[in-house]
Design a protein around this nucleic acid. Structure first.
Length: 864
RNA sequence: GCAGGUAUGGCGCAAUUCGGUAGACGCGGCAGUUUCAAAAACUGUUUGUUGAAGGUUCGAAUCCUUCUACCUGCACCA
């Protein structure tokens, strides 16, 4: 054993050893209980960052722990390999996105392997390979057969110079990213959608089953995102035109007597009809044109003023026959509900603001049960209590009914009379999966002039994405690739065109972890029998930024796969951990702008010597240059130290501040462990249990207490930081024991206690710092691999304290501590407390009214 | 505005499960040992009205109420 700890050397050696023995390669084994530990797969940007290191260190620690506990652990890794950066790089250099991507994957795989993570690399997948994305296409066709995939018009950002659509981030500020002088247009295109709304109820309701396993805030975010609202649709007649009915959606049909106008979205078909029929004012026409240029998001953006125009037409309230002016306004959206509302200003913030501005009547129809306000009193602010406590007033036969009752009765009335129906709406929209991009899964459909839209026959899958695309020309590379586009129709054999849209990359990540279970299957996405063993995922770990989109889409995909008969469950992930961000202070120089930490020397800019401004501690980001390169840190400290610091510096779900001093502390600890084991590793001859000294018993007690604590800290609480702290305590205890042996030679029992402590320490270090653990384990005389060894078991008898320190309180204030044997009864505790001289002095002249004894913890004397 | 989270020594953070000695562990500071000297290492040492106010209790960092600051998400969804 080398006297000094050289991380680079031992890490390389142990990684080779793991690869040679294949310890992390797993197969289905019905005899063994499985544990699927999954981390979110990275986009292959070219280099890993500290966020990846943290994410994967957490997953690796848990995987090692479960493996050592005897589980058959599936721990895979792959690449979310389609997406914009590859395409941007291709445009910039007129290069091939596939080459760029695969080079990045190779570079990042080397980095992850250098970290020593325990992946089964045989299961590595990249979503940009035809072997993978053919199943995206297969799923897409299955969904189409089920009616889950359809086409409709949707608005995209369009650049006339690029002659293609732009992603939102390419259209920031309203101008094209490549043509800064070209404003982005909104253009309607026919695009592909997946019918999420069919599963909306289930997506919402089954969130209940995730409580306890998923963070509350993720569940809450998903609930809000799905946004179910129960209400009713009601038809309003149009004055003077019996052929027209305006259908509105409301959650508060009970307020319908308070409606003072009906408001249509500017895109509502009736408005176009009125314009076409010459029944529209110039003002109305102008307004509709203006709004057409504004995206729905912008119309309702924060602080946006409510704008509207009277259409000149009137609607008829079906409940009381009242005539109401029909308006159009920017805050009514065509995509939600029916694109039309009734405005009830007395009981809705928005309607109130709008009606005030345009001087529409405001009539109170709800008040609290105990309100003594006159029904006709002017409304100063909208009353919008959501707690169902109100009572309906001013509403004809419905007056006096409590709100919930009124809603039920009035909905029933509308249904009976045939002018309304109960209706549930969702905020979540169907998933627009079309992208007018070149680096994605081709949508497997063909457009034939005769036969319409025809799926590519399944035996012809995959539709392979061409890689010899011309990114230099303006326009969409895929649409210009003639051999790709020109095909024969599978139905009639005539000439036809291939669909040139590609799929949203969220499709790739919706089911990738099912593919890991059976990554080479060329008959199906995965063998249902194999997936039945490995899935669902026991533990998923990733960033909070995926709380909504990815994690809703993958839940959706799971339910669809269940309905296709591939799996039998609806929720893919039992436990979710959203790890915190890796943060660092940012530095800024007046002249040289943001500086990397290494460019700041003693608070001064390395280039000009100016004093730098220290920004707040925030998420590491390239733009602020407050980043640290994992590779650099590994070079200096080794992978084990970097991993250990990541696990120790904060609980996993909290943000973590990278600290060089902290990393040094982690390195110091590993050195300390190395040194003490080096000192002892060849001195265990004759070690044997026997007569243990007090100090040796204390060491054994600490060993077993530590095993207990680390086991629960990792296994139950996932507080890796405190588990590491416990290992540091154990190390300190070994040093303390070693110190007691300065005066005397160790006997057999001492050696036994030290060996026991060191072996436990080496094993428990394995989840955090597997390389050094492996090395130490070998030096302690073991031939087998430690990461494949059994997790240590604690013995309760040995972990038990022999003597307890019991605080004695007088009226809740601590006076003194007394020492009692661990098995002392409550009576003995009390007696020991009363026997103490200091306690007796304090009690002088007082009467004990009450004595509280908390078994084995404390005595509190209440005295007057 | 709504929802959720956080607030504890100089710093990062323990203790909160189920109320029971506030401080484990690391960083930093200080001193000693070692050294020609320094680094490293080892040994020792260092701090508080637990964000504020009130309440419940024999006892509150922990439970309840109100407030403040910061962070995150959502934000005209009818």
């Amino acid at each position: 054993m080398n006297e000094k700890y050289f991380p680079a050397e031992i890490e390389e050696r142990q990684q080779r050893r793991w690869a040679d023995t294949g310890v992390f390669e797993v197969e289905v084994n019905p005899q063994k209980e499985k544990f699927y530990c999954l981390e979110m797969l990275p986009y292959p940007s070219g280099r890993i960052h500290m966020g990846h290191v943290r994410n994967y260190s957490i997953g690796d620690a848990l995987s090692h722990f479960k493996r050592m506990q005897g589980f058959n652990v599936l721990h895979p890794m792959g690449w979310d390999a389609f997406g914009m950066p590859a395409e941007n790089a291709a445009i910039k250099n007129n290069a091939r996105p596939d080459i760029w991507t695969f080079e990045n994957i190779d570079a990042m795989r080397v980095q992850l392997q250098r970290m020593g993570f325990s992946y089964d690399w045989r299961r590595d997948i990249a979503s940009c390979t035809p072997e993978y994305y053919r199943w995206n296409q297969w799923f897409f066709i299955q969904m189409w057969k089920q009616g889950l995939v359809y086409r409709k018009n949707a608005t995209v950002n369009w650049c006339v110079k690029c002659n293609t659509s732009l992603a939102n981030e390419q259209a920031e500020g309203g101008f094209c990213w490549r043509h800064e002088d070209t404003p982005v247009e909104l253009r309607e295109l026919e695009q592909w959608f997946i019918r999420v709304t069919k599963y909306a109820d289930e997506l919402l309701d089954s969130l209940d089953s995730l409580e306890g396993g998923w963070p509350d805030r993720v569940i809450t975010m998903q609930r809000n995102w799905i946004g179910r609202s129960k209400g009713a649709e009601v038809d309003f007649g149009v004055e003077g035109d019996a052929s027209k009915k305006i259908r509105i959606f409301t959650t508060r049909i009970d307020t319908i007597y308070g409606a003072s106008s009906v408001i249509l979205a500017p895109e509502h078909p009736f408005i176009a009809e009125w314009i076409a029929a010459g029944q529209a004012s110039e003002e109305l026409k102008t307004f509709v044109e203006q709004q057409a240029a504004v995206s729905p998001e912008d119309r309702i953006a924060e602080g946006k003023e409510k704008l509207g125009v009277f259409t000149g037409h009137y609607a008829i309230n079906p409940f009381n026959g009242e005539n109401l002016p029909i308006w159009t306004a920017n805050f009514v959206l065509t995509g939600y509900g029916t694109g039309a509302i009734m405005a009830v200003p007395a009981h809705d913030e928005r309607d109130f603001e709008f009606s005030r501005k345009y001087d529409l009547p405001i009539r109170r129809v709800i008040k609290t049960a105990d309100s003594d306000e006159a029904d006709g009193a002017p409304v100063e602010a909208p009353f919008t209590a959501k707690d169902d406590s109100g009572v309906v007033v001013n509403s004809g036969p419905w007056s006096g009914k409590p709100v919930p009752e009124a809603i039920a009765a009035m909905t029933a009335h509308a249904e009976e009379q045939g002018f309304g129906t109960a209706q549930t709406n969702f905020k979540i929209r169907d998933w627009g999966v079309s992208r007018q991009r070149a680096w994605g899964t081709p949508i497997p459909f063909i457009h034939c002039a005769k036969c319409g839209i025809v799926p590519v026959p399944e035996e012809q899958l995959p539709v392979v994405l061409p890689v010899d695309l011309n990114f230099a020309s303006a326009g969409a590379p895929l649409a210009e690739h003639e051999p790709f586009v020109n095909v024969t129709c599978p139905t009639c054999g005539g000439t036809a065109r291939r669909d040139t849209d590609t799929m949203d990359t969220f499709v790739d990540s919706s089911w990738y972890y099912f593919r890991y279970t059976d990554p080479k299957n060329d008959q199906l996405p995965f063998d249902p029998k194999v997936a039945a063993y490995w899935t669902p995922v026991e533990q998923y770990i990733g960033g909070i930024e995926h709380a909504v989109l990815h994690l809703i889409y993958t839940r959706l995909w799971t339910k669809i796969m269940r309905d296709l008969g591939l799996i039998t469950f609806g929720e893919p992930v039992k436990k979710l951990l959203t790890q915190g961000m890796v943060c660092l202070a940012s530095y800024r120089c007046e002249e040289h702008d943001w500086l990397y930490p290494v460019e700041v020397i003693d608070g001064k800019c390395k280039f000009c010597g100016r004093t730098v401004t220290v920004g707040r501690i925030e998420k590491m980001s390239k733009s602020k240059k407050n980043t640290v390169d994992p590779d650099e840190m590994i070079k200096i400290y080794g992978a084990d130290t970097v991993r250990l610091f990541m696990m120790f510096a904060a609980p996993p779900e909290k943000d973590l501040e990278w600290s060089e001093a902290g990393a040094e502390g982690a390195a110091r600890f590993l050195n300390r462990v190395w040194r003490i084991i080096h000192k002892w590793h060849d001195k265990f001859d004759g070690a044997a249990a026997g007569e243990f000294s007090d100090a040796a018993r204390a060491l054994r007690r600490k060993t077993h207490q530590t095993i207990k604590r680390v086991t629960t800290d990792i296994g139950e609480r996932m507080n890796f930081n405190t588990a590491v702290a416990a290992l540091m305590e154990l190390t300190n205890e070994i040093y303390a024991f070693d110190n007691t042996l300065k005066e005397r030679a160790p006997v057999a029992a001492d050696k036994f206690a030290v060996k026991e402590a060191m072996e436990a320490l080496a094993k428990m270090l394995a989840p955090f710092t597997p390389h050094i653990a492996e090395e130490l384990w070998a030096h302690l005389g073991h031939d087998e691999i430690v990461v494949g060894a059994a997790w240590p078991v604690f013995e309760a008898e040995l972990a038990k304290e022999e003597e307890l320190e019991i605080p004695v309180q007088l009226n809740g204030k601590r006076v003194v501590s007394v020492f009692v044997p661990a098995e002392a009864t409550d009576e003995e505790l009390k007696a020991a407390a009363l026997a103490d001289a200091k306690v007796q002095a304090k009690l002088e002249g007082k009467q004990i009214v009450k004595t509280i004894v908390v078994p084995k913890r404390l005595v509190n004397l209440v005295a007057k």
